[in-house]
Amino acid sequence: MIRFDNVAKRYPTGREGLAGVSLEVAPGELVFVTGHSGAGKSTLLKLIGLLERATRGQIWVNGRNLNRLSERNIPYHRREVGMIFQDHRLLHDRTVFDNVALPLVVAGMGHQEIQRRVRAALDKVNLLGKERSLPIALSGGEQQRVGIARALVSKPPVLLADEPTGNLDPELSREIMDLFLQFSQVGVTILIATHDIELISRLGRRIVQLREGRLQHDSGLAQ
């Protein structure tokens, strides 16, 4: 589903985000990406979502070579990649419903289909009763669940999460991780960047560890 072939990313400032990473993620796999801050976790995810372009190497996502993807096609690529952020990135002047509906509106979906899908997505993250609330009225964990609902409402084959539990207490973090485990069971390919080793080590999933832009350890290869 996702394939990195000797990928490097150097920023204009000279800082190296990634320095030659090769990686393959199978469809439906759930992979944790860990490492210290600055190790390249976020860069890895941004390259998959085309928030940034690689300076060297090839990246394939869902059968497409991202190097060959024109700027014009980036929006269509992003519709196949759901993204979740530590700071949620919600629109605070829109209701929970409107926030979750955004990817469908952007894709030009019909009104009734939007209603149905948003309800289903909110149901999955246990927020059905909060449709009409503004994000500001929700707790941090709830806001994160709105962000997750928005990422999965268009049923993308790939889901990326950058420190999704960064600001949450251990119990809420567990809940969020359980959600991701559920999605992975229905075939969604998921990459989660986190430094919460303690939490993920108990889940028994593949862990990719980065250090200074290089692949330091990949539990998937070790097995």
């Binding site: 589903m1 497409r64 070579n65 894709a107 030009g108 979906m109």
Partner: peptide, 23 residues
């Protein structure tokens, strides 16, 4: 897995004229 098919057909685009007008 994806190397055998690097040139996937283009993205599906939603272009119903009525919906476009409504939009």
């Amino acid at each position: 897995m994806k190397r055998r098919n690097p040139k996937r057909p283009g993205f599906r685009r939603n272009r119903s004229p009525l919906r476009w007008l409504l939009h």
